[in-house]
Design a protein around this nucleic acid. Structure first.
Lengths: 210, 210
DNA sequence: CCGGATCCGGGTTGATACTG
DNA sequence: CAGTATCAACCCGGATCCGG
């Protein structure tokens, strides 16, 4: 991208991360940790391969991303955020918070990846009963299941199913996101096609708003 | 901008404000309040007039900007942020914080406008002695002077000179920004060409970091 | 399969000129 | 003052290809 050539912190930041796709690449690396090139491609549906290669080079040059040869026997290169890149977490969080209301009226045919759920989970959900035994919620909404679990007060996500989930949430992404963020009531979502197996209290334990 | 077509809050936010120039237009409206078209042009050196018109239309459509006929006798249209647009303040702040270190090594020929100083001032400076009488610092670094003043605990900026400033800061933007944010010591900046008239304590009262 | 490079058509941006 | 018109240059998206 051409520089804005303005002596302003915002303009300088946008010189680095204002390009198309750039912040979405950062999102992938924030949510998934070190990624292979093809992991990034799968998490960024619609990106052209030359653009991904270009952006990774630019981000590396800017000190946001580091490229590393994975230790044997993996034999592939991994892309990961530097500490400077991880500092973009706050930017991604604020943009995500601002964009969250736009998820209320979803367009059809929007792509979806299960791990994107980690964004609202990390920034909205809290364990309101850290004194209680930890809980696990399995979410089935994208192509792959993912798991939400409490770990001494924090709420984490990880890919894959849970061994013994306290609850299982199944349905379209808008319903799952609506319920998790508390925008949609459980009964309301059920009427729209969401399936929830488990104690509603399990859900309330991590939902925002009180 | 083409939509990313991803069911993700970050992607949805970038669908609206991810276009080139868009967040800089929001910056102008955040820092200066309601603006005329030509005010925006002067605050966005380098923008093409057709792009400014396009972006304003898109932002209006997205509910971020409102266009209003100014009350007589002004007889001009004013552009201002809606409440949704003002909510982008947090986004601009985080991006500005992230970009601030990039101001340390300035390129020559970067454009500068005095009112851009309001960004670091709003987000970094605090009045550490709200019990004391208010103070006023005049800054002369761009084409026009601007004034920093404490108002019961908060630090504000306004365009124009101060009537009876407690201090006057004169010099190139990198020096002024460096001193205000505390990255540069006053003596260090003086050696580099900054002029400071007044009690150094006046400066310390609002500088960040203790 | 992985990690790109290359090529091409079309859309967007940027600079300038012009207008109600 | 607040844009529109025009046009060249550049960037993006999609497809294809290629060396490990």
């Amino acid at each position: 991208m051409r520089s804005y050539r303005q002596y302003c912190a915002l303009a300088k930041a946008l010189d680095v991360v204002g390009d198309r796709w750039t912040l979405l690449i950062v999102r992938e690396l924030l949510l998934r940790g070190p990624c292979r090139y093809t992991d990034l491609q799968s998490g960024l549906p619609g990106i052209a391969t030359n653009l991904l290669a270009d952006r990774l080079r630019e981000l590396e040059q800017a000190g946001v991303v580091r490229r590393e040869a994975a230790p044997p026997p993996i034999a592939t290169t991994l892309f990961q955020l530097t500490s400077r890149g991880e500092a973009l977490d706050a930017v991604v969080e604020q943009l995500g918070r601002w964009g969250a209301p736009l998820l209320a009226k979803p367009r059809r045919n929007d792509a979806f990846r299960s791990h994107w759920l980690a964004l609202p989970v990390r920034h909205c959900l809290r364990d309101h009963r850290p004194d209680q035994p930890p809980i696990t919620i399995e979410v089935r909404t994208g192509a792959e299941p993912m798991t939400i679990e409490t770990v001494n007060g924090a709420v984490r996500t990880r890919p894959g199913a849970a061994r013994t989930p306290d609850a299982v949430l199944t349905g379209a992404p808008p319903l799952v996101v609506g319920v998790l963020t508390g925008r949609l009531g459980l009964e309301e979502a059920r009427a729209a096609g969401l399936q929830y197996a488990g104690d509603p209290e399990t859900l309330r334990r991590v939902q925002p708003g009180r």
